[in-house]
Design a protein around this nucleic acid. Structure first.
Lengths: 193, 193
DNA sequence: CGATTCTTTGAAAACAGTCAATCTGTGTGG
DNA sequence: CCACACAGATTGACTGTTTTCAAAGAATCG
């Protein structure tokens, strides 16, 4: 829970009282995930969101041809889950699983809303989180519709260097919307320069 | 302001008192935009977000070759602006302009935060807005990285039929990350079926 | 060491972009 | 009312990029 406390203090403007943190704390449950274990499978409802204390998590969907498309990558101090299903409480179109073995803190949708109304600090956290998530999504959309594969990969390496050695190339390729073969060729081309 | 009131009541769970709405109202300023008029230009800080009472607005960036890439399209009862610059109050990388002549209600970042802490209903609105925006962005990312141009266009027509006759094809093409020529060929191919 | 997963590579095919020309519809000013 | 400009849409020929598929080569792990 120390990780959550540290996280909160860096993202919330005011001080967080002991009572507040005790309250927040009480709504989270600790869970360990083995490598490849699912946090969420397609068709399930995303009951809980996961704050990642340790590990790496991937969100992806599978198309009609069986090809996986990586929607999001998450590491320590990020939140993993399917926002859409979490908010609507309807079946998800995505899988979320542990790429590395993980330690996470889970909170349900209900408890999120409860905490939001009880605790201004938590409310502030959620607002900031959503804002940051929106900004990141907008940047990714801009990159995806504006640039070719090579430029997108370059930008990815600059913005998310910590992902590059943590996920294999075929996953990064699917995050960028290209095939592993194309990414391999792009890397060869770039290394020749 | 009636449009704003109607909008609030559909997105907020509780009733909105007259005092609350008077307070909210007082932080918005009415503005008319001529067709092609800029709400925001690249390099400027997005001081205000715009609630659209009437009209259609486009957010786009321009790459080093001078090509425009449409990031977002907005119509009545949506919010227009550059979220990133609005939140960070740093210079924007985007243009936001009126595609049709518009009537909008503007609110500054400062007033947004003020209202948020003063008025739970407004706070709830912002949270829901950010949630919805995140969901829409996630869907768009999924579509862009998973499907080819034809499928993306089909999905676009299904999800946003009201955009199809309101923006010209070359703008819809740039929203989808393809050229107007390709979109024209896709449409011909689809109409033959 | 064997199994598994990840990466690289080549050749052909599919897909999308480029550029220039033409066509269409709309509206404006003379 | 016509002529014209203007913005948008279409098309063809060509180029460039990315995918596909299959095979082989590396790296990792129990």
């Amino acid at each position: 829970m120390q990780a959550l406390y540290n996280y909160l203090t860096t993202y919330v403007s005011g001080v967080i009282s002991d009572e507040d943190f005790d309250n927040i704390k009480s709504h989270f449950t600790y869970k360990q995930l083995r490598k490849k274990q699912f946090l969420l499978e397609e068709g399930e409802i995303c009951r809980s969101f996961a704050f990642i204390v340790k590990g790496a998590i991937r969100q992806y969907c599978v198309d009609e041809r069986g090809i996986e498309h990586t929607i999001n990558l998450f590491v320590e101090n990020w939140w993993a889950g399917d926002r859409e299903s979490f908010v609507t409480q309807k079946p998800s179109a995505y899988y979320v699983d542990a790429w590395e073995s993980c330690e996470v803190l889970l909170i349900t949708r209900e408890d999120t809303l409860k905490l939001c109304s009880q605790c201004p600090a938590f409310n502030e956290l959620l607002l900031k989180l959503d804002e940051r998530s929106n900004i990141a999504a907008q940047k990714r959309i801009t990159s995806t519709i504006s640039y070719n594969a090579e430029m997108r990969y370059q930008e990815f390496v600059e913005n998310y260097p910590f992902f590059v050695n943590r996920f294999p190339q075929h996953i990064i390729a699917s995050y960028l919307g290209i095939t592993k073969d194309t990414l391999s060729r792009i890397r060869r081309k770039m290394s020749r320069k």
